[in-house]
Computed example of a mutant assay.
Amino acid sequence: MTLTEAGQSVYEAGLRIIEDFSELESSVGRGQASPSGLIRISVAPVFGRLYIVPHPPGLIARYPHLSVDLSATERTVNLWLFAQEIASGAVITVLSDFAPAPLPIHAVHPSGRQLPNKTRVFIDFVLETLAADQGPAFVSIGV
């Protein structure tokens, strides 16, 4: 018995589908074990310079298959960004009874989708970095 020409075509197409599926399954598995791909981040320029820009080398060292696209957009400047100067004594706090409440920091992602592993590890990395700061610019941090 031999395959007909149509049967041979179906067989070869089936093999390609199985191979493509195996490749897809493997790439998803790698993405879960070692996050990879592009993460797009948008931050206020001053916040980004002080708290985000210095830290991606640690993130990339931990997850070498990630890449970061950072864009800074001008927003209202938070002065809770002079943390180093306040801690060193170069700037002092006056009228602390009238200080505004700390502003929240949000990680925003599209709804209706499962959070990609690369995004989760980035958020966790930023939380870890900010929690280590404990300067006057930040209070408790949570997810």
Rank of each mutant, 00 (worst) to 15 (best):
F21D: 07
S22E: 05
S22T: 09
S26P: 00
S27Q: 10
V28G: 02
R30Y: 14
R30D: 11
G31R: 12
Q32L: 15
Q32S: 07
S34K: 06
S36A: 14
G37Y: 12
G37T: 11
G37M: 09
L38M: 13
I39G: 05
I39V: 15
R40T: 15
S42N: 05
V43H: 06
V43A: 14
V43T: 15
A44M: 12
P45V: 13
P45Y: 02
P45D: 12
F47M: 02
G48C: 01
G48D: 02
G48S: 00
R49K: 13
R49I: 03
L50R: 14
L50G: 05
Y51F: 15
V53N: 08
H55I: 10
H55W: 15
P56K: 06
P56W: 10
P56F: 14
P57S: 13
P57K: 14
G58N: 07
G58L: 09
G58S: 10
L59Y: 01
L59I: 07
A61F: 04
A61L: 04
R62F: 03
Y63H: 15
Y63R: 10
P64S: 10
H65V: 01
V68Q: 02
L70Y: 02
L70V: 06
S71F: 14
A72Y: 06
A72E: 11
V77R: 02
V77E: 00
N78D: 07
W80V: 01
L81G: 04
F82P: 01
F82L: 06
F82M: 03
A83K: 01
A83H: 02
E85S: 04
E85T: 01
I86E: 01
I86H: 01
A87T: 07
S88Y: 12
A90E: 04
A90D: 04
I92V: 03
T93C: 01
T93R: 11
V94Y: 08
D97L: 12
D97I: 11
D97E: 15
F98E: 13
A99T: 09
A99Q: 07
P100Y: 06
P100L: 14
A101H: 14
A101D: 07
A101W: 09
P102I: 12
L103R: 12
L103D: 02
L103G: 03
P104N: 09
P104G: 04
P104S: 04
